[in-house]
Nucleic acid binder design. Structure first.
Lengths: 201, 201
DNA sequence: TGCTTTGCGTCACTCTATGACATAAAGAGC
DNA sequence: GCTCTTTATGTCATAGAGTGACGCAAAGCA
């Protein structure tokens, strides 16, 4: 399950230059423009070159800052796997595994909802099937976190940990995708919580 | 969940020409060459142009017969969603939903195992993360079948059906990926059956 | 004023995928 | 045999996602 690409997420985001030439545009600005264009006209319909031109840089610069086009959508949410890893450890050891995953994932999504762009990002993902790929940076990392957590528990073999990681991750994804179709009154974490309620019946 | 791309799978495979120019190479030959090259050197490492050259056609011809590079790997397995749909209907209506999914998926994979290339295809998928995408033709179609089946049951709302479809599909996938890492003695359907046993504990 | 460090533009290139157009090869009807 | 139609393929051009190489720009530092 581990591979070299796991570290790709760390490449994204704003470089922290103290000595050399400072960056021309912030990651926030790039992502704001990209999110606006993609929510207006669709992820597939607007190319990276077009986003770059609107921002005022070259496509080459975008691809130096983000490993893939999809990573622009995820932005700071890519680092959420660290929060998930910690949240999993903080759940009650006496609760069942899926319950602990539910608590951690719902908490992570609820806390991440303070970012005003978070819902915007989720909506674009929910409307773009190719972004729902299991190999998308966050989903891959969530699954890795869930797997690492599960496999460290006593009496959990490899296959069981894999199944746990896959089903927990895709249940969260199912909840998020379903949330996109709902009226804007509800919160994403509520949809994920409901999704887990259905899984655990 | 439904979109126009669902029908793309029907494009793949050998054309059935009765009047015009006959095809130069069969789908079996194309897939045999592609599977050999990709298992030897990796899916990402061998381009479609290289496969086409080895077969004796142009890359344009390959992309006319297969909608994407990934569809060459899946080949006849793409049509397995029809078998899955029928298998789901034939399960006992008194069994729980996940149990019915387990029976249908395991049966489908067991029956498909008579194709001598089936295991070969699964191994390439298991070793290639980008082929494990939720938007890969077969996984998308499996999930669609599972969703359609679940949502037609009394008392199953949309979110519940989505969660059911996602978790059943990804449990099968987890089993298949795990099987690739095992010694060749076991059968793929056994790994999937074990995966479901873990999910349903 | 150099020197080093870091970000960016430019250019060239690969690979997947698609549209347009011409051509090849079969069957059907005469 | 000769057209006409049908279907598959080759060729060419193009778009879009990435990537490597190279040089320049702009900052801090000695």
């Amino acid at each position: 399950m581990t591979n070299a690409r796991t570290t790709r997420a760390a490449d994204a985001g704003t470089p922290q230059a103290t000595r050399g030439r400072p960056i021309v545009v912030t990651a926030e600005h790039i992502e704001a423009v990209a999110l606006r264009l993609w929510s207006e006209r669709g992820f597939h319909e607007v190319s990276v070159a077009e986003v770059a031109a609107e921002v005022g840089v070259t496509a080459r610069t975008i691809f130096r800052r983000y490993p893939t086009k999809a990573d622009i959508v995820w932005g700071p949410l890519t680092a959420s796997f660290q929060i998930l890893t910690e949240a999993l450890e903080q759940t009650s050891p006496r609760a069942p595994l899926l319950g602990r995953a539910r608590t951690a994932l719902v908490g992570m999504i609820r806390d991440g909802d303070t970012d005003p762009t978070a819902r915007h990002r989720i909506r674009i993902v929910g409307r773009t099937p190719e972004l729902q790929s299991s190999t998308s940076a966050p989903f891959l990392l969530w699954r890795q976190s869930l797997y690492d957590f599960a496999v460290a528990q006593p009496g959990v073999d490899d296959l069981r940990a894999q199944v746990f990681a896959w089903s927990a991750q895709s249940t969260a994804l199912a909840g998020l995708i379903w949330w996109v179709t709902q009226d804007p009154g509800t919160a994403p974490w509520q949809a994920v919580d409901e999704a887990f309620a259905h899984l655990m019946d």
